[in-house]
Write a protein that binds this DNA or RNA. Structure first.
Length: 892
DNA sequence: ACGATCACG
DNA sequence: ACGTACGTGATCGTT
């Protein structure tokens, strides 16, 4: 027997919102309407046991009811942003429930439900309609019952036609007449003034319908008669407005709203995100929310853990290897201590295979009896499923142990699924999926100064739990990547790239110690001179590097005007100092001091510390799971921020040299990749044309914005146009541009307006991407990389504006990141295929750096830009410029 | 541990 | 009216 449940989504969400206190989760997302909705849903699913469920939503603001009565729903307060931000969340949650949703442009939820109840009546299917709106009572029939929420949302009153008769003395269709007479302030339906529920009911009991009341006006008298006479048309129109339209063109069959129960894993994940702990418990959706350690012990107890410590355990090892032979499903966890994998100490590993987990200290791998396990690690054909295999591979490599055959990395997958998720720990990912708890690393090892490797047994148990968690997470995350359209991005791009990055990092780049030392002593001399000069001007010695002391000297002692303040005191940043330059001779000295001491401490001393004694190389660590846009980041040392803009700093690049005598450094960088990407994704005809003709984009922008010819563009106009282009990429605001150019907000605003008039496709993109972000709660890049924007519907202007700029910037910056990553994978393949000796060393967001032997120079000069430009075909050409020299400085 | 500052794209 | 450009990491001084 079919049983349908049709829910008026907007109405219930509204009721829930106003009946619950404002709840928020840790991410600042309001959740009260979603919570109330869920309580109602769980209760009614249990009570009614429907076989089919549909939640209908209103779509858009304009419905057919507005035709002829534009004020419909006019007086209504705007939906509070705290509520509207919950709709995307609610819709996502309904997906986790496996409940169908429907909305149709131009119609309200009422009409969709009205249409389906008509179908239900025709088919004779027993149906319950859930709403907060008594208007819907007009749909009641012997098959259709209306559940109207009462006080909050979890209690409902059920109305059958009999119940309506009993309460109002009306048949269901007369509810429309009731509304026609009394009106409805919330929908701005006027009705007749002075007629409320009581009078309307009396009139209807006597005359039956609005029309009959109007035909029998002579039977009325006094003020009532006068009011109805004067508002005849209003009454007729109000009745029309209150009538639910039951002929909505719904195409799909009702089979599509079948409800077969929720997906516990998805639902648990959704509840966890929303922090509905009580509901997780109530539905027994996962591990108890109790003590993590306790839970870990409980799950560890169920887990059979075998420790392999010496050749006495050879039988266990054999058992592990046999299991690995039998099945490709495994979970590998390799533990290292320390942030820098090039220096990390490996302390142990665990492999989960089928029902058992095997844990061992890394030293075992170096013993002869474990040679086969080492082979397994080194075999590309033996798939490994792990967590942060990139780091593991590097740490193993430094220990002389090879690693090949990475098949899936839970950390990398988690990053793609939500690149902004702060907790990229295995424990966090595990918890998010409501799997048996794994204690956090902090809990086991302690953090910061308290870090300590625990006793062997504790360590093995922890590693075993992590390996087991990996094994369980792999299929879940593989499925999630598929569901979010990111399988290709993961398997064809990010995963291959992680191997390539590990290779680049192990290779390292040579840095001339002598060159840095020479630069350093030069800086030292200059700094000594500047420091004493500064002391002279200040009349006292102080720590110039202390913003606090500097502020006191400048603003208190020397009496310079303070411009900006920070949380802790005066701001003394370069922007402030530059404004102060005309007031005192000390200012340029301080700016110069800052510049030189930065070079000295970060780039000379800092870099020297990173050079490996044995090889003279530095080995950066590219992190693939940090940047929210999909870019890489670089650490220990950061080789993505080596100075270039000022000549003094640029000299640092002279120290970066090829590792083989007679070779060259070759650097290729994309030309205007972000604006080219913008041209493609916005489809702006003008911007596309500019790149198709390979014009100087800033000059072209200046021509269009200022309305002049190429010859008339002076350097200042070009500079301003360049700033506008930057602004566009960042998600423009007039204030931001005015700051950058030192002009008024008005002027900046006019610039932007001028720009958007000429580049109208860009304007459309900016508008569309924000709308789409509000609807979906995330934005994507060309390769479907995703970034969630939780704040896109925030009520706080600042927070929301930030999210909007992010919505505009992320597809641009992120697509550019996609493209250079593609180029890296293709370049790696090209070097292998052609068996070239040249090596890819560095990536700096839009630039790739290689070391190249002389006999490959000519080839590489054409190959690299060719591969980079051809990495992805867009509607505009991509372009890469190439340079080379005996060091990185000369490759310009 | 955190904020201010400044290096890069 | 609200007050900001997007994305990172290293170093220093202060708490």
């Amino acid at each position: 027997m079919e049983k349908w449940m049709l829910i008026d989504g907007n109405s219930i969400a509204y009721r829930a919102f106003f009946s619950m206190p404002l709840l928020t989760n840790a991410a600042g997302q309001h959740t009260n309407a979603v919570f109330g909705f869920t309580l109602m849903l769980l209760k009614l699913l249990d009570q009614e046991k429907p076989t089919h469920v549909l939640v209908a939503f209103d779509a858009g603001k304009i419905t057919f009811r507005h035709e002829g009565y534009t004020e419909y729903k006019g007086g209504r307060e705007k939906t509070p942003p705290e509520l509207s931000e919950q709709f995307p969340v609610l819709k996502e949650l309904l997906n986790a429930f496996n409940i169908s949703q429907f909305e149709l442009s131009g119609y309200e939820a009422d009409d969709i439900i009205g249409t389906l109840t008509r179908v239900a009546d025709e088919k004779g299917v027993s149906t319950v309609v859930v709403t907060g709106d008594k208007d819907m009572l007009q749909l009641a029939s012997d098959k259709v019952t209306i559940a109207v929420t009462r006080k909050g949302v979890s209690e409902v009153d059920l109305y059958s036609p009999e119940a309506i008769q009993e309460k109002y003395g009306l048949v269901p269709l007369q509810i429309i007449d009731l509304k026609g007479l009394m009106g409805d302030t919330s929908d701005n339906i006027p009705g007749v003034p002075g007629v409320g529920e009581k009078t309307a009911l009396k009139l209807l009991h006597e005359h039956g319908s609005v029309e009959n009341v109007l035909d029998n006006l002579d039977k009325l008298k006094g003020k009532l008669k006068e009011n109805i006479e004067n508002h005849k048309d209003d009454a007729i129109m109000s009745k029309r407005l209150a009538t639910i339209f039951r002929e909505v063109p719904i195409e799909q069959g009702t089979d599509e709203i079948r409800y077969d129960g929720y997906d516990a894993v998805k639902l648990a994940e959704a509840f966890r995100k929303l922090e509905f702990k009580s509901l997780i418990e109530r539905l027994q959706l996962g591990a108890d929310a109790g003590d993590a350690e306790e839970a870990a012990q409980a799950s560890a107890a169920e887990l059979s853990i075998h420790v392999i410590e010496s050749d006495k355990d050879e039988a266990l090892l054999e058992q592990l290897l046999q299991t690995l032979e039998k099945t490709d499903k495994n979970g590998l966890y390799i533990e290292s201590v320390g942030e820098n994998p090039h220096h990390a100490e490996l302390i142990g590993m665990a492999v989960a295979a089928e029902e058992a987990v095997y844990a061992l200290p890394i030293t075992v791998l170096e013993q002869p009896f474990a040679a086969k396990l080492r082979d397994w690690l080194e075999q590309p054909s033996k798939p490994k499923y792990g967590f942060d295999l990139h780091k593991a591979e590097l740490a193993l490599t430094w220990r002389g142990i090879g690693f090949k055959g990475a098949a899936f990395d839970v950390q990398l997958a988690a990053y793609l699924l939500d690149p902004t998720e702060a907790s990229q720990t295995l424990s966090g990912i595990n918890e998010k999926h409501s799997l048996p708890a794994v204690p956090s690393d902090d809990a086991v090892y302690g953090k910061g100064a308290k870090f300590k490797v625990p006793a062997a047994a504790t360590l093995y148990r922890h590693l075993a739990l992590k390996a087991e968690a990996v094994r369980r997470l792999v299929p879940i995350m593989t499925e999630e990547l598929g569901r979010t359209g990111m399988s290709k991005l993961y398997f064809d791009l990010e995963q291959p790239l992680s191997r390539i990055l590990a290779g680049m990092e192990s290779l390292g780049i040579k840095v001339e110690k002598r060159e840095l030392e020479t630069l350093g002593s030069d800086l030292e001399r200059q700094l000594t001179a500047i420091i004493s000069d500064i002391y002279k001007h200040a009349g006292t010695e102080f720590n110039i590097g202390s913003p606090k002391q500097l502020g006191e000297i400048l603003f208190d002692k020397l009496g310079l005007p303070a411009k900006k303040k920070t949380k802790t005191g005066y701001s003394t940043d370069a922007e402030v100092l530059e404004e102060l330059a005309p007031y005192h001779e000390i200012i340029p000295l301080i700016l110069h001091y800052r510049q030189l001491s930065k070079l000295q401490s970060t780039y000379v001393e800092g870099l020297l510390k990173e050079i490996r004694e044995e090889t003279g190389k530095v080995h950066t660590y590219y992190r693939q799971t940090i940047a929210a846009t999909g870019r890489l980041s670089s650490q220990f040392p950061n080789l993505q921020n080596i100075p270039i803009r000022l000549e003094e700093g640029r000299k640092i690049r002279k120290a970066f040299v090829p590792s083989e005598p007679g070779w060259y450094i070759l650097a290729a960088d994309y030309s205007q990749i972000e604006l080219r990407v913008l041209a493609h994704i916005s489809g702006d005809a003008n911007l596309k044309e500019a790149f198709i003709n390979d014009m100087d984009i800033h000059t072209k922008t200046a021509m269009d914005v200022f309305g002049v010819t190429a010859e008339q563009v002076d350097s200042n106009m070009r500079r301003q146009a360049k700033a506008v282009n930057f602004g566009i990429v960042y998600g423009i605001s007039d204030f931001g541009l005015s700051q950058n150019l030192g002009i008024t907000r008005r002027d900046a605003g006019q610039f932007i307006e001028q720009y958007l008039e000429v580049f109208e496709g860009v304007r459309r993109f900016m508008d569309d991407i924000k709308t789409q972000a509000r609807k979906d709660g995330y934005v994507t890049t060309l390769l479907e990389r995703r970034r969630y924007l939780n704040d896109i519907n925030a009520s706080n202007f600042n927070i929301r504006s930030f999210a909007e700029r992010t919505a505009m910037n992320t597809p641009i910056q992120g697509t550019a990141a996609d493209i250079i990553k593609l180029a890296m994978v293709q370049m790696d393949a090209a070097l292998r295929e052609r068996k070239l000796k040249s090596r890819m060393l560095l990536q700096v967001h839009d630039e790739l750096v290689f070391e190249v032997p002389e006999d490959e120079l000519e080839l590489m000069k054409s190959l690299v830009p060719e591969v980079m430009a051809g990495a992805l075909t867009l509607d505009v050409p991509l372009k890469a410029d190439v340079n080379y020299g005996v060091n990185w400085y000369e490759a310009k």
